[in-house]
Write a protein that binds this DNA or RNA. Structure first.
Length: 354
DNA sequence: TCCCGCAATAATAAGTCTGT
DNA sequence: ACAGACTTATTATTGCGGGA
């Protein structure tokens, strides 16, 4: 399946994150217009030049969703407004955004969540940063964007560059196209999970890259404003998994990562096998530390807090059972909840059933 | 140098005409 | 009625140039 995507267009002024909520607030839920142009002109007061083009209305176009032509599908925006039989209508999330904006009740999270669900380029960045990638800067955070890159699986993607011959955002989105398309669009377009996805431009082989830094920094700044971006090492940044899970919903988070739960358990089993003695006892401080590094590097919790939280939660949820425990040597590290007689643990891992 | 707005240009879709 | 050619309307993309 070939999906055409246009350049992502968000609110024009990067710091003006209220702009989309303000625009959507001006629109009725049902909009009896026959074109996007009419909405911008008749409801939002944009000027139209003598050739019939709307002046400076990029931010309006980014609100729409998909457009189907005879034999192609184009993603034109973040799906806040969709076409219906009579014209256009606000989507459920647009209505929620406006409602929350009026109440000033966490509307920024609704906005960010929508970008994570529907903007292919935003999903590409989030996907990379949630699956072991880092966003790296030469000097300071968000400076010199042309040389900033995401490193993922030993490949460097210069996501803000606009040269087609560079390894850029287009490379990233097509390297992981199936996961990046995500279940939300997949459901709306009725595309099978197994279908191969290729992203192309509307008029060209590859999606447009012009002014990519100008456009793409806007959602990155929004994520920063929400506290979703955390420094991890020298000038390297990742997304905070816990915040995204809480602020944008687990459903959205899950659409961006590979099946975490079973994968985590596999890592844990592997570590236990490596570090346990012949009886099956392993040092929880050491294994826990390795596990945190493997599956949750960017957590803000201290290592001790993380380990206690991870295992106690698992026990409470019935996924783990402590079969036996005993005191170890100082080299075995801290025991569970700081108890000396829980330095060495024998753990039963119960398979998760549906 | 980098960023950004603007406008020229390319591409596409929709509409109209014409000859069969 | 209906292909196919041609025209017009609209949108997408690029590239220029001013300003920090």
């Amino acid at each position: 399946m070939i999906i055409k995507i246009v350049r992502d267009r968000f609110w024009v002024k990067a710091s003006n994150i209220e702009r989309w909520a303000e625009i959507l607030k001006l629109l009725p839920e049902k909009i009896p217009c026959s074109s996007k142009k009419d909405i911008a002109r008749d409801y939002l007061g944009y000027k139209v030049d003598e050739k019939g083009r709307i002046v400076n209305a990029d931010e309006v176009y980014g609100l729409f969703g998909i457009e189907k032509a005879k034999d192609s599908v184009t993603i034109v925006g973040c799906n806040f407004i969709r076409a219906n039989e009579e014209g256009y209508e606000l989507t459920e999330s647009a209505i929620e955004l406006v409602e929350r904006y009026k109440q000033n009740d966490g509307w920024e999270k609704i906005l960010a969540k929508q970008l994570l669900k529907y903007s292919i380029r935003v999903r590409s960045i989030a996907f990379a940063l949630l699956n072991g990638g880092y966003l790296c800067f030469e000097k300071r955070y968000m400076e010199n964007l042309a040389n900033a890159y995401i490193t993922l699986n030993d490949k460097e993607y210069y996501i803000f560059r606009d040269k087609p011959e560079d390894v850029n955002i287009n490379t990233l989105m097509n390297d992981y196209s199936s996961k990046i398309l995500g279940g939300f669009w997949r459901k709306e377009l009725d595309i099978d999970d197994a279908e191969e996805i290729v992203f192309k431009g509307v008029n060209k082989e590859y999606p447009s890259l012009g002014s990519m830094s100008t456009y793409l920094k806007i959602p990155v700044l929004l994520f920063g404003y929400l506290g979703w971006i955390i420094e991890n090492g020298d000038r390297r940044y990742v997304l905070d998994k816990h915040k995204i899970k809480n602020d944008a919903d687990k459903e959205v988070y899950d659409s961006l990562v590979y099946q975490t739960d079973t994968e985590e358990i596999e890592v844990l089993k592997e570590l236990i096998k490596e570090y346990s003695d012949i009886r099956g006892f392993f040092p929880i401080g050491i294994v826990g530390s390795m596990l945190k590094n493997r599956i949750d590097r960017e957590s803000n919790a201290t290592e001790e807090q993380w380990i206690d939280h991870y295992f106690i939660t698992g026990i409470n949820e019935g996924r783990f059972k402590i079969k036996d425990h005993e005191q170890g040597q100082p080299r075995h590290g801290r025991g569970l909840l700081g108890k000396k007689d829980y330095q060495l643990i024998k753990l039963e891992i119960l398979e998760i059933r549906d």
